[in-house]
């Protein structure tokens, strides 16, 4: 039961965003995806969720290809995601935002819901129970009847994660869940995500907040220019000189940082010339 990327590639014309990435994600763990801006972290998430097409290679969950499916079919394979820029259903209530996730399971009973009120209320009750559970977990129960769009920013982030979790996904993709949150909120988020580490779930977090990544993740994948640079436990990543050079910037030697910066500038220069 794993998620496997096999020679996964994404190209926009001449620009290679993801360069033949091959890796696999074990269940029950939280995987951190880190790397500098433009390394291709979000692109990986978007390809897995079906928001972007795959140029070549494949993505498979339990041996079942995901990359050939449409976006809604991927979601129905129990792959859930959040977005870098929060995308809630603004003019629906918090509760409705979660309820609607049961559409794939419940849509078959729509006509019965329309003509037979007791069936409808039983169904609704069942859905609401599950939704309220997850709302309570995220301390949002007081907002159930509020429009999602009018929630404060931090709550919106929580709601989006709640929406991804409500149908108990097997793959949970979080695209910068802590972006824009304050210290206190980030700590809460870390605790909640840690509590959601269930045995058969693969969680992948793209995040810039290193504190969160190091505390939360069991396995960290470092990306650089569309390639896998390093993979290991938080301690291993922190100890790796490659990662320090490429990204973490914890190197004490100022010359090293300068060299790395020079290197980047050279690469950018090559890219700029290629474009023109």
């Amino acid at each position: 039961m794993t998620l496997v990327f096999d020679k996964l590639r994404k190209q926009y014309g001449q620009v290679v965003a993801i360069d033949d990435v091959t890796t696999s994600f074990a269940p029950g763990l939280i995987h951190g995806l880190i790397g500098p801006n433009g390394a291709g972290k979000s692109t990986l998430i978007n390809m897995t969720a079906g928001s972007y097409s795959v140029s070549s290679g494949s993505i498979a969950l339990d041996g079942k290809r995901l990359d050939t499916l449409k976006k809604y079919q991927i979601a129905n394979s129990r792959v859930a995601r959040t977005y870098q820029n929060i995308r809630l259903f603004d003019q629906m209530t918090v509760l409705e935002n979660l309820e609607v996730c049961f559409y794939p399971a419940d849509v078959g009973g729509t006509w019965k819901e329309v003509v037979w009120p007791p069936y409808a209320s039983a169904r609704r009750e069942k859905r609401r129970e599950k939704c309220m559970d997850i709302l309570r977990f995220f301390d949002l129960q007081g907002y159930a009847e509020t429009d999602a769009g009018s929630l404060p920013y931090g709550r919106q982030r929580m709601l989006e994660i709640a929406r991804a979790l409500v149908c108990e996904p097997r793959v949970l993709l979080l695209d910068e869940p802590a972006a824009g949150l304050n210290h206190h909120e980030t700590a809460e988020l870390t605790a909640r995500l840690a509590a959601q580490r269930v045995p058969d779930r693969i969680t992948i977090v793209v995040e810039h907040d290193m504190d969160l990544v190091m505390k939360l993740c069991d396995n960290i994948i470092v990306m650089h220019h569309g390639k896998l640079l390093f993979q290991g436990t938080p301690a291993e990543v922190q100890a790796s000189p490659d990662v320090q050079l490429a990204y973490l910037g914890t190197a004490n030697d100022i010359d090293e940082i300068r060299a790395a910066a020079q290197d980047r500038r050279a690469q950018l220069g090559i890219r700029a010339r290629r474009r023109s």
Binding site: S42, S51, Y52, S53, Y83, Q84, N85, R87
Partner: peptide
């Protein structure tokens, strides 16, 4: 659709 998603993000 991809480029729309791209622009949004």
């Amino acid at each position: 659709e991809e480029s729309i998603v791209y622009k949004r993000e």
